[in-house]
Amino acid sequence: MRADAKENYHHLLVAARDVITQQGAGASLRDIARRAEVSHVTLLRHFPTREALLDALLRKSLEELTAKAGSLELSSSPGEALLIWLRDAVGFVQVYSGVVTIMAAALADPQSALHTSCDELRKAGERLLKRAQAQGVARSDMEGSDLFALIGALGWMNDQAPFKPRAEYLFEVVSNAIMVRQ
């Protein structure tokens, strides 16, 4: 890739992060191009679809969350590791309004640009959940897809003004429902 193309690519991702953080995952691609001070055609050359742009924007964060799950697997407390990761995952989906719907659709569609990143995240959470279940500190009837759905639900609440003030309380309710108190 030429130097100017690399610069445009990076500039587009920075602009996309800013615009999507403010406007949500449905933000106008034209607004993103304007913020990056490039043409709409330049944006489409780098990211032919909204999903391709979101994949490039979100992939690094999804990979970091997946890697964090791997390091937490080495933790001496499986329950604590699961809750730390769950809180971080919920925090991530709360950054970009509307991303939960896109991630859920991507998980169900193996052809999606975001599918692999979302599936790896789901599997990482599932490993933490299974480790906590093996220690008897998490509900035995949950699956990794349940955990992924709860992350989505908790993230979605942040997008809803009436629920936002209770988001922390509801996170505690959900996390208490996942964990087995001894």
Rank of each mutant, 00 (worst) to 15 (best):
M1T: 14
M1S: 12
E7F: 03
N8Y: 03
Y9F: 09
Y9E: 03
V14D: 06
A15V: 04
A16N: 08
R17N: 15
R17K: 14
D18N: 13
V19Q: 10
I20L: 14
G24F: 05
G24V: 12
A25T: 14
D31N: 15
R35G: 03
R35L: 07
A36V: 03
A36D: 02
E37S: 06
V38F: 01
H40P: 13
H40I: 07
T42Q: 02
L43A: 09
R45Q: 14
R45I: 12
R45H: 15
P48V: 07
R50Q: 13
A52Q: 13
L53V: 06
L58W: 03
R59N: 01
K60V: 13
L62N: 01
E63V: 06
L65M: 09
T66Y: 00
A67E: 10
A69F: 04
G70R: 09
S71D: 15
S71Q: 15
L72I: 12
L72M: 12
L72Q: 12
L74E: 15
S77H: 12
G79F: 05
G79H: 07
E80Q: 13
L82C: 09
L82Q: 08
I84E: 14
W85Q: 05
D88T: 11
D88K: 11
G91C: 10
V95H: 00
G98Q: 04
V99H: 00
T101P: 00
I102D: 02
M103T: 03
L107Y: 03
P110E: 11
Q111T: 15
A113Y: 10
C118L: 00
C118R: 00
E120D: 08
E120S: 08
E120W: 00
L121A: 07
L121S: 02
R122C: 09
R122H: 02
R122I: 06
E126T: 01
R127H: 07
K130Y: 01
Q135R: 13
A138H: 09
R139S: 10
M142N: 00
L150G: 03
G152Q: 12
A153Y: 14
N158R: 09
Q160W: 01
P162H: 02
P162Q: 03
K164G: 01
K164Y: 00
P165L: 02
Y169I: 14
L170C: 12
E172W: 00
E172K: 06
S175H: 04
N176T: 15
N176F: 11
A177L: 08
I178N: 02
V180M: 09
V180I: 15
R181L: 15
R181Q: 15
